[in-house]
């Protein structure tokens, strides 16, 4: 049961960074590319990408209740930066008015995740720059449609934070098996279903 929930959480976190990574990358590259076409390419993916984060935090709360609070409150201001960036980024992409606002939002989110990575690894703050660089690279691969490279940059974006996580011993931080057993019936079928449906959104919109 413990392993199952690590896999569920891992899948959601990896899904979030692999997908939302190119959103943020797109935002970071926006000042250097044609605005309309660049945003247009991201459109069918946008809503679907960000919701992976919501699902991941939901699972973190229910399955790892004693980890969630420590983790988030331990990096309070970093998450303030990430969330403020997210709100700005999502609103700015909706508005399509100012590219610099999309860029600023994406930069805040990426630097925020970088700072969180540095926090997890107890590494110097400069490590924070890793995430914006990886996101930008992923965004560039997505925008220039170099699909052969896509899985590689997706992995590069997705892995740093889960790997840094693996240093945490989760035994004792997880919920009781009664709770985990109940939730497993829901979590296990829903993730593949959402992947399938999100895939259909993309294939429909490119028709």
């Amino acid at each position: 049961m413990e392993l199952l929930w690590l896999i569920v959480l891992g899948t959601l976190v990896v899904g979030y960074f692999a997908l939302a990574g190119f959103d943020y990358g797109t935002g970071l590259l926006l000042p250097f590319r044609g605005r309309d076409e660049t945003l247009h390419r991201m459109t069918p993916f946008f809503l679907g990408n960000e919701v992976w984060l919501v699902a991941a935090i939901g699972v973190l709360f229910a399955a790892f209740p004693r980890l969630e609070g420590e983790l988030l409150s331990g990096a309070h201001s970093t998450f303030t930066l990430i969330l403020a960036g997210l709100v700005l980024f999502m609103a700015a992409v909706q508005l399509r008015l100012w590219s610099w606002l999309v860029f600023t939002g994406a930069l805040m989110v990426s630097v925020g995740w970088g700072l969180f990575l540095a926090h997890l690894l107890h590494a110097p703050v400069a490590v924070a720059l890793v995430m914006p660089v990886l996101f930008a690279l992923h965004g560039w691969v997505f925008q220039t449609r170099r699909w052969a490279l896509f899985p590689l940059t997706a992995l590069l974006c997705a892995l740093p934070i889960p790997l840094a996580f693996s240093s945490i011993d989760v035994a004792g931080l997880m919920a009781h098996t009664d709770t985990l057993g109940l939730l497993a019936w829901v979590a296990v079928p829903i993730i593949p279903l959402v992947v399938l449906l999100q895939w259909s959104i993309v294939s429909i919109s490119s028709r």
Binding site: G58, F61, A62, A63, P65, R66, L183, A187, I190
Partner: peptide, 13 residues
Amino acid sequence: GDVFGAPLALETL
């Protein structure tokens, strides 16, 4: 979290 988290996680998922 064991109790309150269950409906909350079901909501997100």
